[in-house]
Amino acid sequence: MEWLQVVVLSLIQGISEFLPISSSAHLILVPALTNWPDQGLAFDVALHVGSLGAVVVYFRHELWRMLKSWRDSLTGGKTDQDARLAWWVIVATIPVGLVGLAFKDLIEGQMRSGVVIAVGLIVFGLVLGYADRRKRGSRSEYQLGFKDAILIGLAQALALIPGTSRSGITMTAALMLGMSREASARFSFLLSIPVIVLAGGLETLNLLGDPVPVDWSAMIGGTLLSGISAYLCIHYFLEFIARIGMQPFVIYRIVFGLWLFWFFW
C-alpha cells in the first residue's frame, strides 16, 4: 500500500472505533471514493491491535484492579465493585459473540451495503439522541447489575448491523438504563476490549491460511498510528461529552446517513 492509504485508514479506524459514529460506515467510503486496492486482512488485524492497545493503556489502572479483584472472586475472595465490573464486561460480551458466530456470513455479505449502513446511522443515531436527552441519569459503571449487563450486551449484538456503531449502541443502552454520559462511554470502552480480542482472533485465524505476503512496514505503521489516534480519541471524547453531550454526533450521523443514501441509492 501507499503510505497515504496507510495513514488515512489508520486514522479512520483509530478515531471512529470509539466514537458513536460507526467505523464500518466510514471505512466503506475508502474504496468507494478512491482507487486504492483492498488493504487486506493482515492490515485490518494490525489496525484492531492498535485500537486494542490504546484502550488497554488508557484504562490500565482500572483494568489492573478489575483483573486482580476478578481473580480473587474466583478463588473465594470478596467480590468487590471491581470484580463485579469485570464480570459485567464478560456477561455483556456473550450475546455479541453468539450472534456474530451464528450470522457471520449474513453480516459480512448481504448486510454490508451502503443503504443498510445509512439506515443504521440515522435510526440508531436518533435513538442515541433520545436516550441522551430523555433517559440519561447519574449512575456509574460500578452501579450496574446483572440485568443491566445483559441488556447492554444484547444492544451490543445489534452493532453487528453495519452502520449501527458498537460504541454508539452500547452508550445508548447505558444511557437508557440511567447511566451518566461519562460512565456510559467508559463502560463502552471497556466492552471493546473482549470484542476486539475476539474479532481480531478470528481474523488472525483466517490470516494464517492466507498465502498473500505481509507488508510489515505498513502493518507496524498502521498499528502505531491507529493506537495513537485511538488513545487521543478516548481522552478527548470523554472530556467532550462531559461538556457538550451526544447531540453533535447525532446530527453528524443523520447528515452522513442522508449523504450515503444519495451516494449509494
Score class of each variant (00 low, 15 high):
246 M>Q: 01
102 A>T: 04
6 V>C: 13
41 L>I: 06
193 I>F: 10
172 T>D: 12
195 V>N: 06
53 G>L: 10
92 A>D: 11
56 V>W: 10
76 G>H: 02
84 R>V: 00
228 I>F: 11
72 D>P: 01
200 G>A: 09
141 E>N: 09
120 G>H: 07
178 G>V: 03
182 E>F: 03
30 V>W: 09
151 L>K: 11
142 Y>P: 00
91 V>D: 12
183 A>G: 03
41 L>R: 03
28 I>N: 08
207 L>I: 07
176 M>R: 01
169 I>V: 14
43 F>H: 08
238 L>K: 07
217 S>N: 08
183 A>C: 01
262 W>I: 04
244 I>H: 08
189 F>D: 06
265 W>E: 07
58 Y>P: 00
177 L>C: 09
259 W>N: 00
8 V>F: 14
4 L>P: 03
40 G>W: 12
44 D>Y: 08
109 G>E: 10
204 T>E: 13
239 E>N: 11
83 A>R: 00
168 G>M: 14
96 V>Y: 13
47 L>V: 04
178 G>N: 01
166 R>A: 07
72 D>W: 02
177 L>A: 11
252 Y>F: 08
172 T>A: 12
21 I>A: 14
36 W>A: 10
51 S>G: 11
228 I>C: 05
235 H>C: 02
75 T>W: 15
85 L>F: 02
104 K>G: 02
248 P>W: 15
252 Y>Q: 03
29 L>P: 03
160 L>Q: 06
166 R>V: 07
171 M>Q: 02
125 G>A: 08
200 G>N: 12
195 V>P: 09
74 L>C: 06
134 R>F: 07
137 G>P: 02
143 Q>P: 01
26 H>V: 13
13 Q>F: 06
152 I>S: 11
77 G>T: 01
143 Q>M: 10
174 A>E: 00
8 V>N: 15
9 L>N: 15
72 D>N: 03
99 V>P: 00
195 V>G: 05
197 V>S: 03
249 F>I: 12
247 Q>I: 09
132 D>Q: 13
167 S>W: 04
242 A>I: 06
129 G>Y: 08
12 I>V: 15
251 I>V: 11
44 D>I: 11
190 L>C: 09
21 I>C: 15
150 I>Q: 02
